[in-house]
Design a binder for these strands. Structure first.
Length: 395
RNA sequence: GGCGGGAUUCCCGAGCGGUCAAAGGGGCCUGACUGUAAAUCAGGUGGCUCAGCCUUCGAAGGUUCGAAUCCUUCUCCCGCCA
């Protein structure tokens, strides 16, 4: 039976940091002594219901806690979403309605269960509207617990303040509200990305000021997106969603720059490929494991085979959607057809053609052939670039 | 309440009366190459009935042969001072 110290070491192995030093070990000891599970908190934002691999880093860590018998407390930030979080690059987010929040939260949970265990003993889902919809005097009492200087220490606030960029009062208040969540659910541990360090630590101060034991915090490094540079986020378009199709997940992973692979292996806890494996094959291994995690091994093998066919053998995929061509059987204007088939403008289609990106049954179409007889198209596969295919039929 | 700065094509950001469908970068697309939808290199990137035409530079008016560029009003955003 591993000691709390060993368990703590295991839990923090691929984490960014655990604060205060030794805090997690103490919590584990205390829980063992009191024969109770730890309450491990994660706040989630119900404005973005599409979970991607970046989210699964923290979720995976929560799962590890669950496997050890601890209880995960998911907090749906319904109250904060309703107010409209203006954080980030000063883009004011629209306040969401109750139904939207419900729908988003439901979607989030459903997707989170690809990683988390839904066992009610191991999972509790709460909404912060339960306690944040408070009277003004209670809110003021909370607001008194931190100073502006304290909040402005947070790196992104400090930077924005220095650059005379806007910071809303609500934004300043957010860390306090998040901290109060920890008070309300009596969190023992709170998880988050490294960007959450300040907020998580402030939660400790808030808990202490309410006379509660302080939570320990565990931060996970941010997973870079498939561009290999910026953190994975849907708005940057560099994400791999947990509900995406196997082929997409596989292909997107193969697009990851080689240098970023190590981080993915570690944070996604994918078992390493054997020593000496070529980078390309390591990436294949990674891609296969990721697809298998969300769609099963069979789908992963299928995705790999399809990938090989398209990008290694440059062959046609085995399933191609049909596209009905409206024609009287005479001349067909290719730019119009391509635009129609792939949802582009004719200008884009024309450029594609001029750049040699259009093929018929795998054969490149001459750059200056804009009009062809339908007889040359019927039943053949029209290809735009490497990834878009359509089989032509008279419509 | 006063003063000042700003709104440009997907994003950032130049432009300051014609040579502007608008520099540059990012992103994205395509091609070559390859060990991959990596890297690298090259090209492209408003629309169309495409050597031409049409619509874009916060909105509406105006000046001018001609406006993203000048004027007026309006809308929105930001900072500073009170």
């Amino acid at each position: 039976m591993p000691t709390p110290s060993q368990i703590a070491a295991q839990l923090t192995a691929n984490a960014h940091e655990s604060l205060p030093a030794g805090g997690l070990e103490q919590k584990l000891e205390k829980a063992a002594a009191e024969r109770r599970p730890l309450r491990v908190k994660l706040g989630l934002d119900p404005t973005a219901p599409d979970i991607h691999l970046g989210h699964t880093v923290v979720l995976g860590k929560l799962r590890e806690f669950q496997e050890l018998g601890h209880r995960v407390v998911l907090i749906v930030g319904d109250y904060t979403a309703r107010v409209g979080d203006p954080s980030g690059r000063s883009q004011t987010r629209p306040a969401l309605s109750g139904e939207e929040i419900d729908a988003n939260a439901a979607t989030y949970q459903e997707q989170a269960f690809t990683v988390l265990r839904a066992d009610p003993e191991l999972l509790e889902v709460r909404r912060n509207g339960e306690w944040l919809a408070m009277e003004a005097d209670e809110l003021f009492a909370l607001a008194r617990r931190a100073t502006v200087a304290q909040i402005l220490e947070r790196e992104d606030f400090a930077a924005r303040f220095a650059e005379q960029k806007p910071i809303s009062v609500l934004e300043l208040l957010y860390p306090l509200l998040q901290g109060y969540d920890s008070v309300a659910i009596e969190a023992d541990v709170e998880l988050g990305g490294t960007d959450q360090t300040f907020n998580l630590l402030l939660g400790r101060d808030i808990q202490r000021s309410y006379g509660l034991p302080e939570q320990t915090i565990l931060t996970m490094p941010l997973l870079v997106g498939i561009d290999g540079e910026q953190k994975m986020s849907k708005s940057l378009g560099n994400h791999v969603g947990v509900t995406e199709a196997p082929a997409e997940q596989f292909g997107k992973t193969m697009r990851l720059p080689d240098e970023a692979m190590d981080g993915w292996f570690s944070l996604l806890a994918v078992a390493p490929a054997p020593d000496g494996t070529l980078p390309r094959d390591r990436k294949r291994h990674l891609a296969r494991e990721i697809v298998a995690r969300f769609h099963g091994h069979q789908a992963a093998a299928g995705a790999e085979a399809a990938f090989d066919r398209l990008f290694v053998e440059r062959d046609l995929p085995d399933e191609i959607a049909e596209h009905a061509v409206t024609t009287d059987g005479g001349r067909v204007h290719l730019p119009a057809l391509i635009a129609d088939a792939f949802g582009q403008s004719r200008g884009e289609a024309r450029r594609l053609l001029e750049q040699g990106g259009v093929r018929l049954d795998g054969e490149p179409v001459a750059a200056d052939r804009f009009d062809v007889d339908f007889s040359e198209l019927d039943g053949r596969v029209l290809q735009a670039g490497k990834r878009r295919f359509v089989r032509l039929r008279r419509g």
